[in-house]
Design a protein around this nucleic acid. Sequence first.
DNA 1: TATTGTTATACTCTATAACTATA
DNA 2: TATAGTTATAGAGTATAACAATA
Lengths: 162, 162
Amino acid sequence: MTAARTSLRKRAGNGATRRNDADEIGLDALVGHAGYAVRRFQLWIFQDFIKTLAEVDIRPTQYSVLTVIGANPGLSQMAVAKRLGIERARLVHLLDGLEQRKLVKRIKSKADRRSHALHLTAQGETEITRFKRLAARHERNVEDRIGKENRERLLQILAGFT
Amino acid sequence: MTAARTSLRKRAGNGATRRNDADEIGLDALVGHAGYAVRRFQLWIFQDFIKTLAEVDIRPTQYSVLTVIGANPGLSQMAVAKRLGIERARLVHLLDGLEQRKLVKRIKSKADRRSHALHLTAQGETEITRFKRLAARHERNVEDRIGKENRERLLQILAGFT
DNA sequence: TATTGTTATACTCTATAACTATA
DNA sequence: TATAGTTATAGAGTATAACAATA
């Protein structure tokens, strides 16, 4: 009893209004909000992705752009932006970076000279296999963290948002 | 056969390199990445939260701060920041806004004069019940979107990240 | 010396608007 | 007139570093 009470007060000398200090703080209504849990999980998962792919300096959004272009060569910037839910203005900068790194090339479309057909370069094709290998390692980290079945259940539940 | 092929080419007049235009674009390796699904879901859920609480002008982070202070009056800014995974520098600005709106007050701690004890104001106590009512409505939107059981499964799977 | 709150800076991301060249 | 790509700007959000007051 006294022990339980003490565990709620980290430093006994604190003022009467101070109750606890870090982990023992209740979240009240926040527990039970899907959005809060999802936000915290997303922070964790992106941090792990960035860390796991740090050696190739590829961030989640860059990876998604490369993957979609690789699987659908010739797409326009608009099509990629729409498909991934990225602003087309932002995709311009993302592609600038990937083009400077010789991973992607923009080819002027003959059919519609306003638009660019996006392709991986030969180097991009080569490197993306390494990115995918590292991304698979990251995915195993997720499994280790939440469990193999839970990860699959998660993918099923959220399949409608991809 | 021809029909299936045509469905992959939205406008027949396009150049040979252009294949498809919007929804029909394959994600390839992206499907199967928990991080991608979680990111897209998080975007949706935050947008719905913002929309549902637009009439009270409360965003997800503000709601989480108010909820934690309400459930743990007297907390320091450091304690709130740590508990919610917010930078303490950012919490300063968040609290500035909530204090100007008379929802929160900072009280100088007598025990440790470096720190502030955070409390909801009387007005904050009143208004938070309205915020919680709207947040519950948002939560029902999530249920409508992914299903009641799936939402609960999700909360279970991600409980370790809150 | 270390910590709390604060200020400031930089970088990422989102949201717009406007411009150009094409259609 | 509408669209694709671009440029620019403003606002969140994140990540740091440094400072004053206090421990």
